[in-house]
Design a protein around this nucleic acid. Structure first.
Lengths: 206, 206
DNA sequence: AATTATACCATACAAATGTATGGTATAATC
DNA sequence: GATTATACCATACATTTGTATGGTATAATT
């Protein structure tokens, strides 16, 4: 069991976790700057205290060498941009509707975003309500891949098939009919390709 | 479209991706050391070339300040240590049996490892054959969590319940009976807690 | 009353770090 | 034949970085 951190130590640790989620650990100077300290020694001493209590490990003389221990106990909120329907289309929201607490284990590349799935039309592709799909708008959409698309101002996640004069969005669940979009139809936009599915085990599922 | 990298540039870029997956970008000196260069300027010039071709961004004067662009095109092979049965116990392998290409989006904490699931006893917890479970041995096992355990030299992934004089491993699939282990039984060992599930979308599933 | 933990500051220093400049050599391209 | 890209080297330098030491002040604990 870890010892209790003081409020300031907790704030510094949170800053470390947040930094790590952005991909780069801060230097002492950057931490000092963040908290308005005029001196790196102040930070140094806080870090020593945090290390002594077992939350981090400082790698001697290595720049940006702070390691987070107990990584999976640190959670950072990530915005969820909307809910995406695996069954019938759902409305997509302009701003983040919710946040999901991803462990620092799940790094977000800058150009990807998260969507939470609602509905069960992709259940035969093993994607379920509550799953977070990692969506990348910069990956070329290919036949047979699972994509996120906006159709009439609603978002869907479906398997993509390009035909000669139309685009078909298939569900894997036979209860749902494929959506067929004629090429002339304008209220259709591909958002991105689903590159992965991530599910945390923090909350009991099922 | 990106310009073609030379072989050396490609190797350096791969080293950067690998480093990032380990959580910390290298300094010029560390790269030089890795490739046997006697001088940081050599690295500096390679990085300039890689940046010019659009693969990375160097943040001026910032230590370890290399950013990876096109992150989702970078995949790093991670060893899968074995197969884990969600149904009946499977043999566990001493060494890596395979590798999976995880995108850099899925960060591996140093102390976690990957196991590939085989079997469908956890299908009601939405874990299926082929899924990669991220397992952390340093997280306290709690009631109701999904854990990996070794039972008679076979590995299983099940939901964990501690009773007064026994441990029960439950499947979510009613077709499988719970495994009940008496406290006196010795050929049982908890391996770790499943902290996440990752599934790539590269191969067609279903 | 004495001790300890916390929360800052200033000053100092060796090593690490990114950067710059100039040089050599080879292969490919124009 | 001239130019350009590639692939190294050496030397140099201003900053950055982690670390060390010593100091002040407050609150909590013994």
């Amino acid at each position: 069991m870890q010892k209790q951190l003081t409020k300031i130590q907790q704030e510094i640790l949170e800053f470390l976790v947040e930094s790590k989620s952005k991909g780069i650990m801060p230097t002492l100077a950057e931490i000092a700057n963040q908290f308005g300290y005029k001196n790196r020694s102040t930070v140094q001493q806080h870090l020593q205290a945090i290390e002594k209590k077992g939350y981090i490990k400082r790698n001697s003389k290595l720049s940006r060498g702070i390691e987070l221990l107990l990584e999976d106990k640190f959670f950072i909120p990530q915005p969820i941009l909307g809910e995406v329907a695996a069954g019938n289309p759902l409305t997509i929201y302009p701003d983040a509707i919710d946040t999901v607490e991803l462990p620092t284990i799940a790094h977000m590349p800058r150009d990807s975003f998260l969507l939470r799935v609602k509905g069960d039309s992709l259940k035969d592709a093993y994607i379920f309500t509550g799953d977070i799909v990692i969506t990348n708008p910069n990956i070329e959409v290919e036949n047979g891949k699972i994509v996120v698309a906006i159709l009439d101002d609603a978002a869907v996640v479906k398997r993509f098939y390009k035909k000669s004069d139309s685009i078909e969005l298939h569900s894997e669940n036979p209860e749902y009919e494929p959506i067929i979009i004629k090429k002339s139809y304008e209220n259709f936009k591909l958002v991105g390709t689903v590159v992965g599915v991530y599910r945390t085990m923090n909350k009991k599922v099922g």
